[in-house]
Design a protein around this nucleic acid. Structure first.
Lengths: 315, 315
DNA sequence: ATCTTCAATGTTATCGGTAACAAATTAATC
DNA sequence: GATTAATTTGTTACCGATAACATTGAAGAT
């Protein structure tokens, strides 16, 4: 490996000048800079990040903490990691995957946290390194997420435009911020149209949604659309309606949210919100690295949702 | 952060002695060792891996190269990563996720490679750091995998025991080693029973398998079991048989392979080979770290397959 | 012309460890 | 008991970078 000294010798300057060309180029004359650049190119010089890390007392490690149960893991996370890793690699940082159990083993320069619950706020506040949360939150942490409210707002709007006359929201029975936002999107659309809101909440499993349909089938009038907080629930609703003999999308409409995993195997495909998790992961990484560099708050980064048309709404 | 010097002062020895207690404990008297251990405990000393890496000219980074198309990514890889990360974290290594495009950016101490094809053998051979392949191969690389042959052998055996009289193998149309092994398992079982082998191969998509059933439905006699090389294919076969009016598991049996992803949403659940990818990932990590430490070949690590009973075989 | 001032470059010490060599202590040999 | 060998511990230099301070040299002020 070529080092600073090799470059310095070749360019006939001190190694400090080379270091400065890299880190404070404005403090070096153009003449020397050219010499140094030339030498770096000829020797194919790449700075040794380990040495850098040693003097900076940094680690070049970012921890990705997945706080949700690993059993429920979906490709979602895989895409997230791919996105994060892409950015980090570019900046010569590396990603460490940790869970609740082992998150405090070893040092790092920053955290990306996903699956945060209320109970986690405390210890996250106490972390001494920059943090970015993946998933919206109302505790003031910087975060990256889809605009959840706009998502359900748009889907509700679309359902109405397709002529469904009744809109039932099927939500997740949890106190998390994203759920409130998705409900809010539905509510706003419904209120704008002066309709009666109808909300139901279940654990995020398809069979809960399916049971709900079965148990209430007679009260579910024709021409109803279900705005679901997740693809899982949407699939349950579809299954329930189908088993009860209802016709999708002619008599009933269904929309989901997420569009990562289940949509690949579902039949018919759910009309849902497509999230570009990879892109969001990259954003997460960049957000965090900026934060590390500048030591500044970066604020939230909200991605505008895109509808992915499936076969569960008319047309 | 407490350093070697802090510990050395507290224990009234030179820092070199402390270093030796950690790395060559046999070269230090028990008396001093106790003093040093005591001091380390009191100061809660943890070695600085960055400094270590600098003098050892190592990086403490392991690259996980996923060579398959990211689009086809399944939770499979997520589990793999969790397994690998678990081991690496324990040894204070960190994992870097790379793909074909960016695999040579930045240094590392070793590679774990998955999704290897024949075309990759060349450059993998040329890598200068230790390598472990995830997935069996016949090029002499160390690897970790399920015993693929035993897997299909056992499933075939089970199908016969359940009384199915005809066994059709549905394989993946690719030249990869795992496919050959799965075929071999089926063949061995069939030959032991002096039956006529019947093999078909398709791209690894459920609709190919489904079409196959439709196109050949009249020649598919009752009491046939399909030994499939993947859950995807198995799901296609199930769908095909169901659509043609066949009854599973009464008149037709189906088995898959993998049991990670699709099995969660399939209905009925496929009888398949369950692979503990997390565990295999850990093994991968340990294998590689051993290799880095000893600079030795570690050989293959083959996990014995376990059958996961679903509803696609009788009983 | 001399003294400041400031910008451009070089020197030295440092980050936290380890290897290689030096010194000190103990044990072994004659 | 003196000499040598072996074991244990300490000293120094180094890994590859950067910060802090020192030096040089040219422009501007008096």
């Amino acid at each position: 490996m070529t080092t600073l000294v090799d470059v310095a010798k070749k360019a006939n300057v001190s190694k400090m000048t080379v270091s400065r060309v890299i880190n404070h180029p404005d403090k070096v004359t153009d003449e020397l800079k050219q010499l140094v650049y030339q030498a770096m190119r000829e020797l194919d010089y790449h700075p040794n990040m380990i040495a850098k890390a040693l003097v900076n007392k940094s680690t070049r490690i970012i921890k990705l903490c997945i706080l949700e149960d690993i059993d429920t893991t979906e490709p979602y996370y895989m895409n997230l990691m791919i996105g994060i890793a892409k950015t980090l690699d570019l900046h010569q940082y590396s990603l460490q995957l940790v869970t609740r159990k082992n998150f405090d083993i070893g040092n790092c320069d920053g955290y990306i946290i996903t699956g945060m619950r209320e109970q986690d706020v405390e210890w996250i506040r106490n972390l001494k390194k920059p943090v970015v949360i993946f998933g919206e939150n109302r505790y003031g942490f910087d975060y990256v997420d889809t605009n959840n409210k706009t998502g359900t707002y748009l889907l509700s709007q679309l359902a109405l435009k397709k002529g469904y006359e009744r809109l039932i929201y099927v939500g997740i029975d949890s106190k998390e911020s994203f759920e409130y936002s998705r409900e809010a999107g539905y509510l706003q659309q419904v209120q704008e149209k002066r309709m009666m809101p109808e909300l139901h909440r279940f654990g995020n499993h398809s069979h809960f949604a399916e049971e709900f349909i079965r148990d209430n089938w007679k009260s579910i009038t024709n021409n109803t659309a279900f705005i679901c907080a997740s693809d899982r629930l949407a699939i349950g609703i579809v299954r329930g309606i189908t088993r009860c003999g209802g016709k999708i999308p002619d008599d009933y409409g269904v929309t989901g949210f997420d569009g990562v995993f289940l949509n690949q195997v579902a039949s018919p495909k759910i009309t849902t919100i497509k999230q570009s998790i990879i892109e969001m992961g990259s954003a997460c990484g960049e957000n965090l690295l900026d934060k590390i560099d500048t030591n500044d708050k970066q604020g939230a980064l909200v991605f505008e949702p895109k509808i992915s048309l499936g076969g569960t709404l008319r047309d």
